[in-house]
Design a protein around this nucleic acid. Structure first.
Lengths: 205, 205
DNA sequence: TTGACAAGATACCGATTGGTAGGTATTTAT
DNA sequence: ATAAATACCTACCAATCGGTATCTTGTCAA
């Protein structure tokens, strides 16, 4: 079938995607500094020459993971639902509920990829810091806008400062995931996020 | 003066303390995995032979930093004041206020030593995880006991579950420090902890 | 069909890593 | 005074690190 179409031996876009996926996994498991390029290559059966054709340095590969893997992941799970919602408060509640229920074993073990890189890399590499901060700023903004709309609809107390509460919400989320990661306890993870849900309720009017 | 007292050429206890201090700083700045024994030795002018006389492996050194440096630090700043206080809620409020005011540049850049090690090491090394968890459990317990006493004195709402709120408080603190670390913004750090203070107020009856 | 460039492969490099071998020097106990 | 144990030092090691040089191969436009 399709005899005319020359079979593609090479597929640079797919190679790039494979590298990003393997690098993402390796970084999640070992951290960026301890992430081994050789291990990444072993996972992908891509050669080192190919890697360095697509990415100039290890740092470039890491930044690409942040921009092309982590950022879209977060956007899909948080930004899209929140921006589409008309009444954002129940939406926030449900996003938290999902986060509680969908407690992957992988999440419990390795934590949040975004927070991991923040804690490891922000003091060491300004490019990483800025790339991660861009994601955080978007996250804050999306939640803050949701809270503002909630205030306009009379669902959120006027006293709350959307920017500040959004910042705190993200901090609390990352904190809960981080503690659950060390406790290695689904129960800890869920009760911690459960307390955050109760906090959310104090924002409603 | 003191001609009889032989001058000490060697001081193994001090050597150990020097090593722990240097290792603590190096780990805070680079993380544990990327912490270089050679750099630690350079900071202390201690030889590698001496290091390996006091600590069998790099891991042992790291665990000693957790137990002998980080744990006492936290105990001094949180456990002692909380345990001594009769009315623990104002005490918690003030501890947070201190944490807001005493925002060191070093804290803002490198974050919380405890949380750093949690995020980096808990998935990689079970011994680290347990050592860190011991500290967390103590922290939780001290705060929970404070909250319970607060309930007994009628200062804290009966609905709060001390254990769970204590867990959440710590998560939120670490989250705030972690976000401030990436934002590199004193303002972010302080407003985030400020929101946590407001949360604390919702616990009072 | 061919020339030019992108994509990938292999072999290697210096630097750094945690750790060790084998020695010396100090301290302490007897 | 002396033996034994503790404390420390220097030189070295294999393994791994990120990165590079050099080459071949596949792709596509002209």
């Amino acid at each position: 079938m399709s005899a005319h179409v020359a079979r593609k031996i090479r597929n640079p876009e797919q190679t790039r995607i494979d590298l990003l996926a393997a690098a993402y996994a390796e970084i999640l498991e070992s951290g960026f500094q301890a992430a081994s390029l050789d291990r990444i290559l072993a996972k992908t059966s891509v050669s080192k020459g190919a890697l360095y054709h697509h990415f100039g340095t290890k740092q470039e590969l890491g930044l690409a993971v942040v921009e092309d893997v982590i950022a879209p992941q977060l956007a899909e799970r948080w930004f899209v639902p929140l921006q589409q919602s008309i009444d954002p408060i129940p939406c926030l509640q449900q996003l938290l509920a999902e986060k509680i229920d969908a407690a992957d074993e992988r999440l419990l073990r390795y934590g949040c990829p975004l927070n991991n890189l923040i804690q490891e890399m922000s003091p060491l590499d300004e490019n990483f810091r800025q790339g991660l901060q861009r994601i955080l700023d978007q996250w804050i903004q999306v939640i803050a806008e949701a809270l503002t709309r909630g205030q306009e609809h009379g669902n959120v107390r006027k006293e709350v400062v959307p920017d500040e509460v959004a910042l705190f919400l993200i901090a609390a989320i990352e904190g809960c995931v981080g503690l659950g990661k060390n406790a290695q306890s689904l129960r800890s993870y869920q009760t911690c996020l459960g307390q955050l849900q109760q906090y959310l309720r104090t924002l409603t009017s």
